[in-house]
Amino acid sequence: MKKYRCSVCGYIYDPENGDPDNGVEPGTDFEKVPDDWTCPICGASKDQFEPAD
């Protein structure tokens, strides 16, 4: 599963961990994360994430 990086603060979304504090279960692909989800660190919107290499 692919990780994504927040272009604002550098937070990495790791599908293995999800973001359970904000309603995203572990094992959720980034594509399946709700569109209104925001970066748990800086509040950036989902479209500001890019694939992390």
Binding site: C9, I41, C42, A44
Partner: peptide, 9 residues
């Protein structure tokens, strides 16, 4: 008013 990343989370 939250101002996240201006300039810390």
């Amino acid at each position: 008013m939250e101002t996240r990343m201006l300039h810390w989370p």
